[in-house]
Design a protein around this nucleic acid. Sequence first.
DNA 1: GCTACAGATGTAACCGGTTACAAGAACGGA
DNA 2: TCCGTTCTTGTAACCGGTTACATCTGTAGC
Lengths: 349, 349
Amino acid sequence: MVTAREVAQLCGVSVATVSRVFNRPATVSVTTRERVERVARELDFSPNESARALSRQQSAMVGMVWDTDHRRPGWRHPFLQDLLLGLKSALSSHGYHLLLLATSDDARDRHPGVSLADPIAYVGMTRRHHLAGLVLIDSGTDAEAFTAFAQSGLPCVALDVALAGPRATYVTSDNAGGAAEAVRHLASLGHRRIATITGPRGNAPAAARTEGYLRGLAEAGLPVREDLVVSGDFYRESGFVGMRRLLARKDPPTAVFAASDEMAVGALLAARAAGLQVPADLAVVGFDDIEVASLVDPALTTVAQDKPGFGTAAAGALLAMIENSAAPEPVQLPTKLVVRDSCGGQRRR
Amino acid sequence: MVTAREVAQLCGVSVATVSRVFNRPATVSVTTRERVERVARELDFSPNESARALSRQQSAMVGMVWDTDHRRPGWRHPFLQDLLLGLKSALSSHGYHLLLLATSDDARDRHPGVSLADPIAYVGMTRRHHLAGLVLIDSGTDAEAFTAFAQSGLPCVALDVALAGPRATYVTSDNAGGAAEAVRHLASLGHRRIATITGPRGNAPAAARTEGYLRGLAEAGLPVREDLVVSGDFYRESGFVGMRRLLARKDPPTAVFAASDEMAVGALLAARAAGLQVPADLAVVGFDDIEVASLVDPALTTVAQDKPGFGTAAAGALLAMIENSAAPEPVQLPTKLVVRDSCGGQRRR
DNA sequence: GCTACAGATGTAACCGGTTACAAGAACGGA
DNA sequence: TCCGTTCTTGTAACCGGTTACATCTGTAGC
């Protein structure tokens, strides 16, 4: 590894000047700057990141807190890969890398103090790495911990959970709008008994989707029927169980809006198990547009989220805070109704 | 942030002693050690990672090189999430974090020199971060670049691509064995014309799966028929096209082994488009056991890979090299044939 | 009582940068 | 010619640890 000292010696200048060339080029005379730049290029010099982080008290890394809920071990983020891709490319265009931080149960045995249950210790960890910012991915259990991060003063962007703080903001989809659109779509096809299977209690997107469901009903001039709202937890199994419960009602729904594609698939299976045809006997709409949505039979009509957009928006907000220190407004990404086969066409009355 | 200096002052010792307590506890007297440990705990002190990395020339981070093939933009790793989960938890139990490094097209605009096409510059980047090791995820295009990493002397673990070097090794599935088992399974059901849709040329797992296919045929005493081998690229579309080509043969296969689940799904769709029933008219086996495999209709029989095992094995090998500096043997993870519905039962002759 | 040696701890150099401050050079105006 | 700016560059402190080496203390052996 070539150091600034070597470049300086070869150029006959001090290391300070070399450093200036890379950090405040305007303060260096043109001739010197060009000479240093040329030598640096020839020697393939670039500043050591550890030293730079130590000196500046800020590294070129953004931390990512992605904890999996140990109470729900099978949980998967519906589009982590797209998210990462978006984050990575947006961050790296500004020279930042993404540090996937060890969390809670991972580290529990070795660093008993370090877990999201003990956010103070965790915040310390982010400080020790001189992170430039933090991306927080909601796993459903860490709302309080996230607040601690937001209050630490480090630029924070949360995904799918409202976060407030001097340098904190969040990115989420227009969950309510998407859900409302899905319900209006069902209503426009002639459905009047539209049920929903909700996401888990305490989850912000789930709550917003339920709100959107209610709004959609209102906009379509349909009454809310308490017995057509059952709660799930985003998992397939809960969609199956929820659908079975709905079908057992005395006046069962002709359509269902599931707050996640996984649950929609569960609902599809439950309908099939009950001997119903989808979409002829039951229309189903999901939310997320995960990969399987287009593969199930019938292909699932669903509310698509802007998956890479999450990463890009999060990175953008983070970079804005890192550079300007003002927290930008929360970002709400538009959703898009993707019509496939699980709703069928106009319903005969 | 509390520094070692503060702890030292409060204990009435020098910073060197504090450092020793954390790095060479045996060289410090019991009484001093306990005092320092107590004070450190009370003050919530832990060493600054940037300073430590600079001083030791080694950070507590493992880099991850995950480039997406820009020639195949839709490409997704079949189980990145499980992989990350496994990596993260194994690494963090030893105090390491995972740094997702910016790669090729990401950084091309801002750091034109930094791309996998220019591995030297890239290796420099890993050096500047004082990384403890590197996880290389094959994206199909970087074989030469990976060699440069392996030769840099940094502990390297590659996934699904053979890597050799003084401190390099790799983890892969028993692709050949899994493929052979799949073919034997088809043969045991009475199939005699078993086709395959291969993965892309130059991809190691793809080659091994083809090899396994041939071995499986041999073990079942079946002849190899050149016209029953068509090449794909792991994508669904190529499975569709490949299957259509196979069905157009004068003596079409009764069974097909697709080298990826994505292609198997494509094959399923092609069979359906040709008016064939699966499994009655055509048996299909895939490889990977991605999530959709269990969801398509009929549910796909496939060769499952040990997804979290990849992460755990990679982390284990890396940690071994970081601590012992000897490269462990390559790891070959066992596969498991998951029998679902796409092969049906015993074939009537 | 003196030497030898092990054990504990402090001193100071070092890792490789960044940056406040000082100092020197160049230049214009009086 | 002298002074005050402005521009450029060097000096040195600092970021927060790690560790080779020196020093000091205490004890065992003779």
